[in-house]
Amino acid sequence: MSTHGDVHVEIERGIARVVLDRAPVNAFDRHFYDLVRSTFHKLSEDKAVRVVTLTGKGKHFCGGNDVNDFVDLDYEASVEYLAHVRLAFASIYECAVPVLGAINGAAVGTGIALASCCDVRIASERAKFALPEIDVGVLGGAKHVNRIATHGMTRLMMYTARRLDAAEAQRVGIADLVVPHDELTATVDGIAEEIARKSPAAIRLAKYGLNRTETMGLKEGYEFECTLTAAVRRTPEAREGALAFLEKREPSYAEDR
């Protein structure tokens, strides 16, 4: 592994398991942002991938940004640096298939933003969440958190840099599920396997639709969803799904044959 760290990917039966590996706390430098971006772009383009799980190696999900990068970062350099950050976050949020965040430990700064970009966050009871940027001379990440958490709690976290435990994070919407630490992998894998059994075409269209309609009003959003329903009906998987339901059997999609 280089000093910049590595992103490990294992693909099995449609499930891509992504592990962040940059000792000691999986903090990000610019190279690591680019590595995550390229990893998720490749996974989006891989038609064999139906769902992605994302976790950190060791005790932490992601300990934030490497603060060494900030010490001599002037205005011009920060503008260029943050472009790499935004593209990395976008690659997860815009991944063509669902991304399940397996939050195995600390998810602070960059870590909580990464988690917020996932479709679903399953947290270990040991997980911690924070927006500590105010203490290290930077800002950012709160907008991602504000998508899923209450406005007041997002602001409180941003202004104070306080940490939330997993139970409190679940109460305010940051964590969707909290499980015992030794059950995290099995729980996330179980959800991933459930998603992987669905129609690949429908799952990709569902992810696309959920992202596109997130900022739409009810009428506009539902009209857009209706166009996706029509698009699904053009796929052979749609008919197979309906027949399997009527015949009370598991569907057999093209990629399974």
Score class of each variant (00 low, 15 high):
Asn65Ile: 11
Ile203Glu: 01
Leu139Lys: 10
Met158Phe: 09
Glu214Thr: 08
Glu183Val: 00
Pro200Arg: 00
Gly209Phe: 02
Arg13Ser: 14
His84Glu: 08
Asp119Arg: 14
Arg126Tyr: 10
Lys143Ala: 08
Cys226Asn: 11
His151Ile: 10
Met158Lys: 06
Arg37Trp: 07
Arg197Thr: 08
Glu125Thr: 10
Met157Arg: 01
Asn104Thr: 13
Glu80Phe: 02
Gly173Phe: 04
Phe129Lys: 00
Leu100Arg: 06
Asp21Asn: 15
Val18His: 11
Leu210Tyr: 05
Lys207Phe: 00
Glu247Ala: 10
Val52Pro: 02
Val145Leu: 15
Asp72Asn: 14
Arg147Gly: 00
Ala127Tyr: 13
Leu243Lys: 14
Ser124Gln: 10
Glu168Phe: 03
Ile148Pro: 00
Gly140Lys: 05
Val71Pro: 01
Asn104Trp: 05
Asp165Trp: 05
Met1Lys: 08
Met153Ile: 15
Lys42Gln: 12
Ile15His: 06
Ala201Thr: 13
Ser78His: 03
Arg86Met: 11
Phe61Ser: 04
Phe32Gln: 02
Lys248Leu: 12
Val49Pro: 01
Arg13Met: 07
Arg30Lys: 14
Leu114Thr: 04
Ser252Cys: 08
Ala77Val: 00
Ile191Phe: 15
Tyr222Phe: 15
Ala175Glu: 04
Leu228Lys: 05
Asp135Thr: 13
Asp66Lys: 12
Asp119Tyr: 10
Ala201Ser: 08
Asp74Gln: 07
Ala166His: 04
Val67Ser: 11
Ala230Tyr: 01
Glu225Phe: 14
Arg204Thr: 07
His84Lys: 09
Asn65Cys: 07
Gly101Trp: 06
Val71Gln: 07
